[in-house]
Simulated scan of single mutants.
Amino acid sequence: MTLATEVKKLTESKPFYAVAGAGDYAVEKLRELPEQIQKLQSRRDELKDLPEKARSYAGKAEGFAKEFPGKAREYADQLGHKATEVYEEFASRGRKVVSKASGEAALELEEVSEAAEPPVATPVKKTRTTKAKA
């Protein structure tokens, strides 16, 4: 097979789009990071109350620990379904990203090819000059 065939085969596969979508999602979340850091820094004063909050949550944790095995089974049953949903969402997102990038690349290619075309010469009309009679 030719390289072009292999590339076309790759770019038409769902895993390709899922990876593109996951990458786009990661970029989106990384762009949100500075804002998240600012929010956390503004909550520094809350850390002073952390020891008291930890003691109050310790009692609640015992109750959650007893429920944990049942909850874990429920989440495990739902995990396969959720993983499929996320995979489909990433594939859909990836298709949009790739089609947008492909469209932009096609427009750029068109602009470059138009700029590279030699200018078309326009025919020059000759004007006849008549000799004046003396």
Rank of each mutant, 00 (worst) to 15 (best):
T122E: 15
P51S: 06
G63Y: 01
A54G: 01
E85V: 10
E52S: 15
Q78M: 10
R95P: 06
V27Q: 08
G94K: 00
A76P: 01
R73L: 14
V98H: 07
E35M: 05
S113L: 15
F64N: 10
G94Q: 03
A91Y: 00
E108Q: 13
A83E: 04
V120T: 15
T122G: 11
G63C: 00
A101Q: 04
A54K: 12
Y75S: 07
L107C: 01
E52I: 08
T84M: 09
E74W: 05
S42W: 01
V27K: 12
F90K: 01
S99E: 15
K71R: 15
V124A: 09
E89P: 01
S92I: 03
R43P: 00
K82F: 11
G59V: 01
G80D: 07
A101Y: 01
E85C: 01
V27H: 07
E67S: 02
A18G: 02
K48W: 10
A61K: 08
V19E: 11
K60M: 13
L33W: 02
K100E: 08
S56Q: 12
T84R: 14
A54C: 08
R73S: 14
R31C: 06
E89S: 13
K60D: 14
L109V: 08
E85S: 05
Q78E: 11
L107Q: 11
L107P: 00
L50R: 05
E28D: 14
D24K: 15
L107A: 13
K126F: 10
E104T: 04
A105D: 05
F64T: 07
H81D: 15
K71T: 12
Q38T: 13
S113I: 09
S56N: 12
L30V: 07
K66F: 04
V120L: 13
K48Y: 04
D24T: 13
F68T: 14
V112D: 11
G94M: 00
E67Y: 02
A26F: 09
E62S: 13
F90I: 02
R44M: 09
E35Y: 08
V97T: 13
P119K: 12
R73W: 09
D49F: 02
E111C: 08
